[in-house]
């Protein structure tokens, strides 16, 4: 396998992969460049790779927008509270499911797996949430997606492979099941907690359907809804021609890109550091598959 390092196939594969990387990264590069460029260059369509005539005014406008700062705060609240609740409920549930000696172990497992194949659907779920009286509150964001079956099963698989000797040792020392989990299993499973917590956090950060269905009060809107109202509702309605003259039109474009970047930057910055945890999560899940 060490021979033919720069043979024709290797070169072709390298070229294809580099092109692919460009396709993945360039859109972000372009948006950053346009949003940071002077409007004259944007208008002339001269911005391609790097910002021209550095100009931070679009970001000033975006960050001073009351809707965006309010929704940013809302999203942060939903993400922190949601991740905490999801993680606690999922971890406890997963640990008890991993213990084959739990009463009704099989029944509960089937109960959960069945929901992967059949669900009530959008409207019955909406009516259920409505009848619980949690519409238009933090709980409507946090509770309906509190447990993801996939994450639950990944965690269960992880806990099921936890060395039983350690659990036995805890039992010898007089720990209850609760104590065994909180004092022995959980502290030794930090990696899986980090992984699953990140999955929940990203899903909550990106969630658009829950606020669309369960929130009516604009004060409660998360970033994604505000983002959509600013960027998409405008362009869908063809309001781009609304600006005064063509100059205003292009500035609006930079403004939209700046809005997109402001709401994406946390994920873009954190992602490379957290990547290994995400991959680990898929791996644990795949072992079982």
């Amino acid at each position: 396998m060490k021979v033919e390092k720069w043979s024709l196939p290797s070169i072709l594969i390298t070229i294809v992969l580099i092109l692919l990387v460009l396709v993945m990264v360039y859109p972000f590069l372009y948006m950053i460049s346009v949003s940071l460029s002077d409007s004259i260059y944007v208008m002339r369509g001269e911005v391609t790779w790097f910002p021209k005539g550095l100009d931070f005014s679009t970001y000033q406008l975006v960050l001073n927008d009351a809707r965006i700062s309010q929704s940013y705060l809302n999203t942060i609240i939903y993400v922190s509270l949601g991740t905490l609740i999801s993680l606690v409920v999922t971890a406890f549930g997963a640990y008890s499911l991993a213990r084959r000696d739990m009463l009704f172990h099989r029944g509960f497992t089937l109960l959960i797996i069945f929901t992967m194949f059949f669900q009530g659907g959008m409207i019955p779920t909406f009516l259920a949430v409505k009848s619980m009286g949690i519409m238009d509150s933090v709980w409507a964001m946090v509770l309906p997606g509190a447990v993801s079956t996939w994450n639950l099963l990944v965690m269960r698989t992880f806990f099921a492979n936890f060395p039983t000797e350690l659990e036995e040792a805890g039992r010898m020392d007089g720990l209850s099941d609760f104590g065994i989990f909180t004092r022995i299993v959980a502290p030794l499973s930090q990696a899986v907690f980090a992984t699953i917590g990140l999955f929940y956090a990203v899903a909550m950060w990106n969630n658009f359907m829950f606020p669309l269905l369960y929130l009516r009060d604009p004060e409660l809107f998360p970033l994604q809804v505000v983002l959509r109202n600013i960027v998409l509702a405008g362009s869908n309605a063809g309001s781009e021609s609304m600006g005064v003259g063509s100059d205003a039109m292009v500035v609006e474009e930079s403004l939209k890109y700046a809005t997109i970047m402001v709401s994406t930057i946390p994920i873009l910055l954190l992602y490379p550091m957290l990547q290994k945890y995400f991959v680990k999560g898929v791996m644990i899940g795949a072992v079982k598959g």
């Binding site: 409920v89 406890f92 549930g93 008890s96 213990r99 009530g120 509190a146 447990v147």
Partner: peptide
């Protein structure tokens, strides 16, 4: 163990099975 499972069970009953009957 069952007590530890209750929150999870509650979630499935309220947000998965209750809508199913809905």
């Amino acid at each position: 163990l069952l007590v530890m499972f209750v929150p999870c069970l509650l979630y499935y009953v309220l947000f998965k099975y209750y809508p199913m009957f809905g």
